[in-house]
Amino acid sequence: TGEEYIAVGDFTAQQVGDLTFKKGEILLAIEKKPDGWWIAKDAKGNEGLVPRTYLEPYS
């Protein structure tokens, strides 16, 4: 299990392996990579890379 984050903006996948999401979606951070791209999972179970700058902790 990971930590929940809320998307603060829309993001469209730029390449294969990225995860597209919309502002307000809750994402589960699976792995926090030091380069600023995290592996996350959305509510539908889709998994991919997301930019850290689009996420804020969800409580």
Rank of each mutant, 00 (worst) to 15 (best):
T1N: 12
T1R: 13
T1D: 12
T1S: 13
T1Q: 13
G2N: 12
G2R: 13
G2D: 11
G2E: 11
G2H: 14
G2T: 12
G2V: 13
G2F: 14
E3S: 11
E3I: 11
E3M: 12
E3Y: 11
E3C: 14
E4N: 10
E4C: 15
E4H: 14
E4W: 15
Y5P: 00
Y5H: 04
Y5L: 04
I6D: 00
I6Y: 07
A7E: 00
A7I: 02
A7R: 00
A7V: 04
V8H: 05
V8I: 15
V8A: 06
V8Q: 07
G9T: 14
G9L: 15
G9M: 15
G9V: 13
D10G: 06
D10L: 00
D10Y: 04
D10I: 02
D10E: 06
D10H: 06
D10F: 03
F11R: 07
F11Q: 02
F11T: 02
F11L: 04
F11E: 00
T12R: 09
T12M: 11
T12P: 05
T12F: 12
A13F: 03
A13M: 06
A13H: 03
A13P: 06
A13I: 03
Q14W: 09
Q14F: 09
Q14E: 10
Q15E: 11
Q15H: 13
Q15F: 10
V16F: 11
V16Q: 12
V16W: 11
V16A: 13
V16P: 15
G17Y: 05
G17V: 04
G17E: 05
G17I: 04
D18H: 15
D18L: 11
D18W: 15
D18Q: 15
D18E: 15
L19D: 02
L19C: 03
L19S: 00
L19W: 00
L19E: 01
L19K: 01
L19Y: 00
L19N: 01
L19M: 06
L19H: 02
T20E: 08
T20G: 12
T20F: 03
T20H: 06
T20Q: 07
T20R: 03
F21I: 11
F21S: 01
F21A: 03
K22F: 10
K22P: 03
K22G: 06
K22Q: 09
K22W: 07
K22L: 09
K22E: 06
K22T: 08
K23T: 09
K23G: 04
K23L: 07
K23M: 08
K23V: 08
G24D: 06
G24Y: 05
E25M: 08
E25G: 04
E25R: 00
E25Q: 11
I26L: 08
I26M: 07
L27G: 01
L27V: 05
L27T: 00
L27D: 00
L28A: 06
L28D: 03
L28Y: 12
L28W: 13
A29V: 15
A29M: 12
A29E: 02
A29L: 15
I30V: 10
I30A: 02
I30C: 06
I30D: 02
I30Q: 05
I30F: 06
E31D: 12
E31V: 13
E31W: 09
E31Y: 10
K32S: 05
K32I: 08
K32E: 07
K32P: 06
K33Y: 11
K33W: 09
K33Q: 09
K33V: 06
K33F: 13
P34F: 10
P34L: 11
D35G: 13
D35L: 04
D35P: 01
D35H: 06
D35R: 02
G36I: 04
G36Y: 05
G36F: 05
G36C: 06
G36A: 04
W38L: 08
W38P: 01
W38F: 07
W38N: 00
W38G: 01
W38C: 04
W38R: 00
W38K: 00
I39A: 05
I39L: 14
I39Q: 07
I39V: 14
I39D: 02
A40E: 01
A40N: 01
A40G: 04
A40P: 00
A40R: 00
A40C: 15
K41N: 03
K41M: 13
K41H: 06
K41S: 07
K41D: 01
K41R: 15
D42L: 02
D42T: 05
D42K: 01
D42F: 00
D42G: 03
D42R: 00
D42H: 02
A43T: 12
A43P: 08
A43V: 10
A43L: 11
A43C: 12
K44S: 12
K44Q: 13
K44C: 14
K44R: 13
K44A: 13
G45I: 00
G45H: 04
G45C: 06
G45L: 03
N46A: 08
N46C: 08
N46H: 09
N46I: 08
E47S: 11
E47V: 15
E47H: 10
E47T: 15
E47M: 15
E47P: 04
G48I: 02
G48R: 01
G48L: 02
G48T: 00
G48W: 03
L49K: 13
L49C: 12
L49F: 14
L49H: 09
L49G: 07
L49I: 09
V50C: 05
V50N: 01
V50Y: 00
P51A: 06
P51D: 12
P51W: 08
P51I: 04
P51L: 10
P51N: 13
P51Y: 11
R52W: 11
R52S: 15
R52D: 11
R52I: 12
T53L: 12
T53W: 15
T53H: 14
T53V: 13
T53A: 15
Y54G: 05
Y54I: 09
Y54Q: 09
Y54F: 13
Y54D: 05
L55D: 03
L55K: 00
L55S: 00
E56Q: 10
E56G: 04
E56K: 10
E56H: 08
E56N: 06
E56T: 08
E56I: 12
E56P: 02
E56D: 07
P57D: 06
P57S: 07
P57W: 07
P57A: 09
P57G: 06
Y58A: 10
Y58G: 06
Y58D: 05
Y58E: 05
Y58S: 08
S59N: 14
S59Q: 14
S59K: 12
S59V: 14
